[in-house]
Design a protein around this nucleic acid. Sequence first.
RNA 1: GCGCUCUUAGCUCAGCUGGAUAGAGCAUCGGUUUUCUAAACCGAGGGUCGGUGGUUCGAGUCCACCAGAGCGCACCA
Length: 577
Amino acid sequence: MNIFDLYLDKIIILIKKLNKDGSLEIPETLKGINVDIPPSNFDCDISTNVAMVLSKVNKKSPIDIANTLIDLIKNEDEKIETISVVKPGFINIKFKQTYWNNFIKNVNQNCKDFGVNIKEKKQKYLVEFVSANPTGPLHVGHCRGAILGDVISNILIFNKHDVSKEYYVNDYGNQIINFTKSVFFRIREILFNEKFPIENSDLYPGDYLVDIAKNIIESNNVLKFDKFEDVSKELTLLSVSESLKLIKSNLSNLGIVHDKFTSETDIVLNNEVQKAIDKLMDKKLVYSGKIKAPKGEDDQNWVEREQLLFKSTDFGDDKDRALQKSDKSWTYFASDVAYHDNKLDRNYDTLINILGADHAGYIKRITAVVEALSGDKKKLICKVSQLVKLIKDGKPFKMSKRKGDYITVEDLISEVGRDATRFIMLNRSSDVELDFDFTKVKEKSKDNPLYYVQYCYARISSVFRHVDLNIGNDLDIKDYEFEYTEDEIRILKKIAEWPKCIEAASLRLEPHRIPVYLYELSSEFHSYWNMGKDDPSKRFINEQKKIPNDKLVFLKVISNVIKSGMDIVGVETPQKM
RNA sequence: GCGCUCUUAGCUCAGCUGGAUAGAGCAUCGGUUUUCUAAACCGAGGGUCGGUGGUUCGAGUCCACCAGAGCGCACCA
């Protein structure tokens, strides 16, 4: 039940009627008209800008139009307490107390689906996220995008869409060869006491490779590790598989489960790259040419080479992109073209890619490919998660690939916990860099917004416990004749915002709106709770040791929204803290 | 040189696709526990929304230019 949408519909019907009568002009599109939350210093519940939007086409001042509208609106709705016109031309409406009885009844009767955006057309989504190279465990840098992708998916699922969470495994190419070589040398180190060539900067130095090497030695007694070339094929498979084991366990510790892992090697071996490039060729978007050196770069080392290029400039990219290396093998980009063609073949309505900030430059070319292949500009949406700045003891903390001194997801979770990690990573817009201060998050865990929201839920649970009720059970209430006070209505108004929050989060793929909203709601609740100290009528449990029905549904509805929100964010709502 | 993202209180950030007197937390100062969880609450101070123009009834929000920060810019993945 979205009270803002319901009222917007009412107003649209009204002005259309007036337009039919000939007493009002309306613009072609009614898109600008909205019903919104008024600023808190106005004593009203909802507010609309209709009069201001209609002002132009009617050549009248917004105030005049508003004044003629308010009587008509009031006549049609006996739930209105006051309706008034304010300065630039807003119409402000305050409902009678009884309005909120109907509201809370409605919310309670379909608790689980409260907030679901019924206006959204049901779609099939594919959300690709993480897709870190299978060359070792996940580190903190992967964490934000992982959580972002997971929760974006959760929001879409909450809104009843069909969502598939997918991981693209880059198990092909030079990096994988280097990785496998590194494993090979670690194996020789263990078996033949041969020193690992640490000076070779192409190799992966991390300690986790020793464990991978041990696992491979233990689980296999066929392979001989004399020459890399002899075992490279089998060893690659084993090494990648060990890596994926680590990654999947990291993801599971973060509370993330992907529906599908797609392997780049499979795509390449299936000849899908050639097929996809052929499709682009048919559209005359592939040609053989040379890329010019970027200005300002050092031109001396630049070698112009004839190679196969994709005309991404046709779609707004800065330059055309190479599909083939000079040795005629495919580039990474080419196999990604194939992968996206593969996605398109699976008939999704919308593809979503979650990328790290360091891959933002990649967006234009890949959206160009999807547009070229599907003919639909909006088929692929790329969402970038900005960097996480790690801070330890007040100082920035840099990770070094060469030394292999990563902070892993494992370290992070064991230090601050899964829920705190998820909540804090989401509490900011993905467009801005995020400060993640280890010492702060750990030391000041009491100031952590996660606990603030959880505490709210725990407080409500404790009230239920006191009268032997369970917070999770449905409430069956027949009579909704209540008289909520101003302080309670303030919270009910916040509850009424929940569907709006979900709508914005889903439409714009901005999960941070959910923790931000939950924090605000919790704040209203804690404030109300403390009023009970001075004013016994604000306590939930009365002198007969019972909770009256008005307070009971009130609590139920609040806890339900918190639960829904926390489920989407993917964190626990403990009943005791 | 080019592209992407950002710039809001001392610090970290919200600001619902252009609306009304721009909001939180932290930090600082001062208060609140015989009562359902004080991991909480109440109060005070703190702002030229990076700058300059433009678009319009109306701009933190849209456009242009400028300044600053981060990320990226070949056949790596």
